[in-house]
Nucleic acid binder design. Structure first.
Lengths: 196, 196
DNA sequence: TTTCTTTCTTAACCGAGATCAATGGACGGC
DNA sequence: GCCGTCCATTGATCTCGGTTAAGAAAGAAA
């Protein structure tokens, strides 16, 4: 599927597009393809745009003692609004591609231009904005009160595909533990399942 | 000091008030006094207002297996914008007073009425809004990468008064550990200090 | 295929926090 | 005053994740 069609698909989740609208969307030049390891935003930079992951997988992390502390993964149709973009301050986080990815990016201005062209889309953008706050991943609450093992089981429930698509050592970082510990947790879980 | 004057004091941090303005603020009837244990917001309720703690100490927590998991403390001049207020959904959290407290509360409408009366205050409210996001307490980052002992030392640095004003078992809950563990951490720290 | 690298698993040991239980101190009500 | 409740401390024991080190497994490159 072409990159342009991915954006058409994205909107089609929310709204039925006329052929003219499809045409116009495909003419918008706001989509880029990235290789594994490419950066959407580096630590210290000020984000110039927001992102929408159309295909692939992207991670947001920061470095501590040379170690990546992964805060979030973004996959198909996940929007990314960097704090650095909202605040216009240098980013604490780096955002980079875990897989080859196709990502649409937009500024406030380009979004406004887009919405002037497609006023029908305004309610959709509002809806998406709500999603962002609602679809919080592991929160501070979880880290405070849940053990790593429970956090992993929650992740298996809520984002099973993710576990099968990114390396385990990244999942471990996301859970805030060492790869060895995740390995033990997986073993513990599978041996418990055998018992039942 | 009277409750009304506390609100005058609060604004005086940011702006010099004319006697007329002081008069008008004191006429605003948006301040209430609470006893220790009183609730500002209960779990399941939809928040009707935001709050500003003028005096005293307030905690935000949720219950898990009958245990209070404290997420935040608010003391003098801390504003509280409940998620439940923003989303107009039943609150996951309870907000209640750790000490006898004096709290000002306001809705979007009452704030707008207030700002129409005092247009000079608009930039102050913007400034306060920025503070809210900036003055984040222990974040998900901290819980992911820091040990409870380090978290406690950070708390001692950043909010030393808090540790001396709320019971230790609440501090423990806020740090995500058991009271016994906090006791041991304190012992460890003080014995290390003696060595140096 | 073979080789090299990256990732995952396993084992042994250590330390920190959880849990259970007992003790002692502080404070309020009687 | 005394008693009872709540809270902080301490000890013993247990569990889990961290650390170190080694080896197995899976891919990528030759």
């Amino acid at each position: 599927m072409s990159a342009d069609n991915l954006l058409v698909n994205y909107f089609s989740q929310y709204i039925t597009l006329s052929p003219e609208e499809v045409e116009l969307i495909q003419q918008e030049d706001i989509i880029r393809e990235y290789n594994k390891g490419d950066f959407l935003l580096r630590e210290g930079q000020i984000a110039q745009t927001c992102f929408l992951v159309l295909k692939g997988c992207v991670k947001r992390y920061y470095l501590e003692d040379g170690e990546e502390k992964i805060m979030d993964f973004y996959t198909e149709n996940d929007p990314i609004t960097p704090v650095s973009y909202a605040e216009q301050k240098p980013s604490k986080y780096t955002i980079s591609c875990v897989e080859p990815s196709i990502v649409s990016s937009g500024t406030t201005e380009s979004t406004e231009r887009f919405l002037q062209k497609f006023p029908r889309f305004v309610p959709i953008f509002v809806q998406i904005g709500d999603q962002i706050s609602a679809k919080k991943q592991l929160s501070a609450d979880d880290y405070k009160s849940l053990s790593p093992e429970i956090r992993y089981q929650k992740l298996l429930e809520h984002r099973p595909a993710l576990v099968n698509r990114v390396p385990q050592y990244m999942i471990a970082s996301y859970l805030g533990i060492q790869p060895e510990s995740l390995s033990r947790i997986r073993k513990r879980i599978s041996s418990n399942q055998k018992k039942n």
